[in-house]
Amino acid sequence: MNSGPVRVFLPVIRRLEGALTVPIPSRVRILRELEDDLEALRARLEAEGVAPPEAVRRALEALAPDAASLSRLADLHTTRYHRSTRRLGSDRLKLLERSALAVATASVLVVETTILVRGDLLRHASPFLWLVVACGSVLFALVGAKVFELWIKGDHRRPERGIGTILWLAGLTLVAGFGGVMVDLIRMAGILERSPELATTLVPVWLVRDCTLLSVSILLAGAGCLGWMVLTQWLSLVSEDRLEFLDLGGHFTSPSRRHHHERALA
């Protein structure tokens, strides 16, 4: 759309974009439809002999939504979650959402612990395992919260917020795992130096303990990174489409990315 003729209605479209409070993909679809209709109506009026400024004015008068129409469009395109929680006040809803997030974090912690107990991996657990499990729980809860915010709640006011934290937390989980293994190895080396006769009993136990620590941290960090990657890719597709449509500097870095983008939007 950028390489085509001059987009007469682009300033109006940009202004409307700021006033339309619906998820980004719906927003872009609505405005793309509107701009195409505005352009087509303007062209038709001009073809009928109407002066260009008058054609623009008449097209805008007929098709550009006013505040009431924008509000009705927002109502129609809002998410099911938003519709069903509309009756609750914003403070109450925020409290409920935060409580749900806390419950989700605790649930993940319980599930992780249950899996470790069932696998009999807590008998000689490293103290670092608890740090890793705690980081993993927060990581899962953050990914869940972001998925909820973007895809269920449809709140796209600040879509990038919190995405970086997911990656940092995944990194922290991994560092806690590797760091724990290093500390455990150093401690074991110290004990064996003082009492070499403990090697046959101590080494197998510590191997299991550190393998568990390492596996759990890699697994949790990997899952967190996967969540981060999916969210980032989706956000990138949606944001590129929006920026390109609004002519705000969005660009596709490669033809394959554009192809992928068009397939995803289709």
Binding site: I30, E33, L34, E61, A62, L63, A64, P65, D66, A68, S69, L70, R72, L73, D75, L76, H77
Partner: peptide
């Protein structure tokens, strides 16, 4: 007028 068409269409 004033984009009333689109909410109805959608």
């Amino acid at each position: 007028r004033h984009g009333t068409l689109y909410p109805i269409l959608h």
